[in-house]
Structure formats: structure tokens, C-alpha cells
């Protein structure tokens, strides 16, 4: 159930909801650049606080959002532990802080913006590139499929874990990983078939 809410638009009337999708996308890109380019643990903590503030301001259901993000946060924690071991605390705070800030910023975008609007904004933004062979509609669709793939992939990971546990193989990374990869590839194949069958991408 947690995966269902990640990347899901939650209707609202906040200023963030009213801001045009294109402006939010540009803002996300700019903020992401700042997060990546500004180094240091202190700035990473500030970025997390600002991004968390935006999520709260967006009116997102916090309990649900946090539950939806728990696997991403777990991944960030594992990455943090590895970085502490390899490079020490300051670097770990910076890496994990930057990652969590980026996740929170992206969540703010998806919570406050319907995917349809994001697709339109991406397609509009890429329209000048049509001259060099870029298909803006196709890129916009790929963008939305990527957003959709996040909760789907998390759901498949949970299914694979449950299947391994049911067979008493909870400690076997192989029993989790191989079925997970097979499921992800099969789902990608099925999604491709479904898009093809609906004639999406034909235009």
C-alpha cells in the first residue's frame, strides 16, 4: 500500500498547487543544481529542512508520504552507513542530506501537480528541439512513465520480498533479487505492449 502514494498528485489549493507546472519543473531543476553544486554537511541539512518545509506547505498527507518514502529513506540510510565507513560523518551527512532533499523536492512537485500538467509542460519546453529530431510528446510520456514506474517498482520489490519470505528464503538475496528483476522486466514488457495496443507513440 505504501507505494501507491509515491508520485501521486494530491489535489489542493496552496500556492504551490496554483503555480504553473513549467515553473515548478524549472524550480526543481534549479534547486537540484544548487543542492548538487553546494557542498558541505551544514548546507545539506538546510536543504533537507527547506525541502521538508515545502512538503508540509504543499499539504501532503505527511504520514502517508513518509510511509510511501520509507524504502527510499532506507536506501538513503544504507548509503549513509556506507559513506560513514568510507568517508566519515561530514561526507555522509552531505550525501544523505542531498539525496533526501532531492527526494522531498521531487515529492513536492508530484504531490502538487497532476502528471498530465507535467507532461504538457515537458512537451512545451521541448518543442523547439523538434527541429533536431526530438519528439516532445514521446519524451513527456517517458517522463510520466518514469514517475509511474517508481511506485510500481517498489510494489514489485515488496511482492518479491513477500514471495521469498513465504518460501522461508528471507535471508537469501538471490531469492529476492532474481524474481524482482524478472518481474520488473516482465512489467516493462507488458507496459510496452499496453502502450502499443493503445496506439500511444504512433502519432
Amino acid at each position: 500500500m505504501s507505494a501507491q502514494l509515491l508520485g501521486l498528485h494530491q489535489p489542493g489549493t496552496t500556492w504551490l498547487h496554483r503555480l504553473p507546472a513549467g515553473a515548478k519543473l524549472l524550480g526543481l531543476m534549479a534547486a537540484s543544481l544548487v543542492v548538487v553544486l553546494v557542498h558541505g554537511p551544514a548546507s545539506a541539512v538546510v536543504f533537507v529542512l527547506v525541502a521538508a518545509g515545502l512538503v508540509v506547505w504543499s499539504g501532503a498527507r505527511l504520514g502517508f508520504t513518509l510511509r510511501a518514502m520509507r524504502w527510499l529513506l532506507l536506501t538513503a540510510a544504507i548509503l549513509g552507513a556506507w559513506t560513514v565507513w568510507q568517508n566519515g560523518w561530514p561526507r555522509a551527512v552531505e550525501v544523505v542530506g542531498d539525496l533526501v532533499a532531492l527526494i522531498l523536492l521531487a515529492t513536492t512537485l508530484t504531490v502538487t501537480t497532476p502528471v498530465d500538467e507535467v507532461m504538457d509542460a515537458v512537451a512545451r519546453g521541448l518543442r523547439p528541439l523538434r527541429r533536431v529530431g526530438v519528439d516532445p510528446e514521446a519524451v513527456a510520456l517517458a517522463f510520466s512513465l518514469m514517475l509511474r514506474a517508481i511506485p510500481t517498482t517498489i510494489g514489485l520489490a515488496e511482492e518479491s520480498r513477500d514471495a521469498a519470505v513465504a518460501r522461508g528464503l528471507e535471508r537469501s538475496p538471490r531469492a529476492r533479487l532474481i524474481p524482482f528483476v524478472v518481474r520488473v522486466v516482465a512489467r516493462a514488457h507488458d507496459t510496452g505492449d499496453a502502450l502499443h495496443a493503445r496506439g500511444i507513440g504512433d502519432d
Binding site: 502528471v115 510500481t152 507488458d190 507496459t191 499496453a194 502502450l195 496506439g199 504512433d202
Partner: peptide, 25 residues
């Protein structure tokens, strides 16, 4: 392309067919 406009296809598992986050989208 013309054929796909005339022939709709429904799969066994709707989860594979529903590609957008919400029903309206």
C-alpha cells in the same frame, strides 16, 4: 497504426495496462 486505432486491446492484468498515476489521467 491505422489498425491500432480501430482495434482496442484489453489485457488480463489491468495493472500492466494502467500507465498513469490516477484514473482521470
Amino acid at each position: 497504426r491505422e489498425v491500432r486505432r480501430r482495434v482496442g486491446f484489453v489485457f488480463t492484468d489491468p495493472a500492466a495496462q494502467l500507465v498513469m498515476p490516477t484514473a482521470r489521467e
